[in-house]
Design a protein around this nucleic acid. Structure first.
Lengths: 174, 174
DNA sequence: ACAACCATGTAAGTAGTTACATGATTTA
DNA sequence: TAAATCATGTAACTACTTACATGGTTGT
């Protein structure tokens, strides 16, 4: 599981509350990782129980904001995890099932869906390009280059999908 | 959820037992969808309860082979589902967290992991290319072209990852 | 008869999603 | 002071994974 380690990394970068983290995952980090606040709160509770993080101040109960700070044990755990081999996630894209169903039973109007997903991919790519131009242009430090790589991965993936969507639309049009 | 609809499509293509399906998902279908036999058996039971499929003959209990046949209700359900809009799955690749951790705490030896994943991607791509040459060469019928698209999606994805792995390795080497 | 394999299934646990509940703080 | 918003949390559910159990068939 990578979520707790994503949270540890985020908190080392900058301490914050559960909602702060949820917002960061919704915004800048969203292009390569996502998590809802429910998931985050549950995970933070587990991480506190494990002694990886501590809340500052140690308030309890609902509604009281907690700022989470990573403890030495948390850094140790992150270093341990970050050296393990991790398999790439299996991707199960419903569109591929739909395309297969089109081949088997037909009449699924998959053309429209391809067009819709192509538009969405182009928009995501445009967003990535904007972030790229604003935050990752010119000469970059090693640290900055490493951060850029996560964005670059998203760009490569979207580009691959866009090329494939176009190919698929040509196939269906023929 | 797409698994029951993937199973319906597979069974319309060719009726078979749960284990037959598991083997098909392990082999040819594996490059765009995967499911373990436990998942498949549970889903088949639900699909039978819904009246989408029926076993031929209607044997019960452990160890007795059941050949599943799609009922008219099942075809209807597949057609219904195949027209719904489906969002692409959010991809959470642990490697991106690791790369981010490398930027934040360092010392994660992510270089080795990138090399390992690059090799694995190259092997998968080679497998896809073999399937492509053996089953999808020359002029293809529309049906065949549609089936090729699922393989083509895998090829585009792997190529994108390979390009990105190489870029990431260059960045880390610098 | 018994080993190997084929085939179906149960149980327990992890991860993620959706819907809802509740307390605390800010602001009109 | 009431509404809006911030913030934390519970509950229930779905999908997937891992480990194990059990019956049936085939070959020696």
């Amino acid at each position: 599981m990578s979520l707790p380690h994503a949270l540890l990394t985020a908190l080392i970068e900058e301490s914050g509350s559960g909602l702060d983290l949820a917002r960061r995952f919704d915004q800048s980090l969203g292009f390569f990782w996502s998590a809802t606040h429910q998931q985050i709160y549950r995970e933070l509770a587990r991480m506190e129980a494990a002694g990886w993080i501590r809340s500052q101040p140690a308030q309890t109960g609902r509604g009281r904001k907690k700022i989470w700070v990573v403890q030495p044990e948390g850094r140790k755990e992150l270093r341990r995890w970050a050296r393990l081999a991790q398999e790439p996630p299996v991707s199960r894209h419903p569109l591929l099932v739909r395309l297969w169903a089109e081949a088997v039973v037909g009449g699924t109007r998959v053309h429209e869906e391809l067009q819709r997903l192509l538009t969405a991919s182009r928009q995501r790519l445009a967003t990535y390009r904007t972030i790229e131009a604003e935050h990752f242009s010119g000469l970059m430090s090693r640290d900055r280059q490493l951060r850029y790589l996560t964005l670059s991965a998203g760009i490569h993936q979207e580009q691959a999908w866009i090329t494939w969507f176009e190919e698929a639309l040509r196939t269906l049009a023929a």
